[in-house]
């Protein structure tokens, strides 16, 4: 019996898994990045389905808007014409396939025994009443204030690190 939520989930799961396989097997990095964009939009719509509007918006803005554009810029910046004729896979491809398949088998068999802990206070009624952004902000700026401040330091390190690494060294 396929109800509407089940159909919705199955469609997204199928697209995400299928396009992930397509993404890791394309020869041209630009195609991979564009398929990744479709995956990110489907993941964002899955987040909406899980009542996480704010995370869905962040997913689109940060992942699709910033990270993928950065990837595209770098792919365009490097001259990858030789890529058309080079080998796609490295020597460790069989090892990677075996490792990924066995990891999936272990995860799928152990996750059956997963038991949820006690429920928290943010049920769907409470989130609808105070809106998702306000709920997430209340938790983020009280209980998780210190990790939030640490995150800003991580971003600062990323900015400084990226500039130092990519800067052309001028001999004086």
């Amino acid at each position: 019996m396929i109800t509407l939520p089940v159909f919705f989930f199955l469609y997204h799961a199928l697209v995400i898994v299928g396009l992930s396989l397509v993404t890791v097997s394309r020869r041209n990095p630009v195609h991979s990045v564009l398929f990744m964009l479709i995956i990110f939009f489907h993941i964002a719509s899955l987040y909406l389905f899980l009542n996480a509007e704010f995370i869905a918006a962040i997913q689109i803005i940060v992942y699709a808007g910033a990270i993928l554009v950065l990837f595209l810029f770098v792919v365009f910046l490097l001259d990858l014409r030789a890529e058309e004729h080079a080998d796609k896979y490295s020597m460790s491809q069989p090892a990677g396939a075996v490792l990924a398949l066995s990891l999936f088998a272990v995860l799928a068999s152990t996750m059956r025994g997963f038991v949820l802990g006690p429920h928290g206070i943010y049920g769907i009624e409470k989130i609808t009443e105070m809106t998702h952004t306000k709920a997430i902000g209340t938790v983020l700026y009280t209980k998780y204030l210190f990790p939030f401040e640490v995150a800003s330091v991580v971003l600062l390190v990323a900015i400084v690190g990226a500039i130092t690494l990519a800067k052309r060294h001028t001999k004086s």
Partner: peptide, 10 residues
């Protein structure tokens, strides 16, 4: 797991 495979294979 697809990510693990891609990381090791490409």
């Amino acid at each position: 797991c697809i990510g693990v495979y891609g990381f090791l294979a490409r």
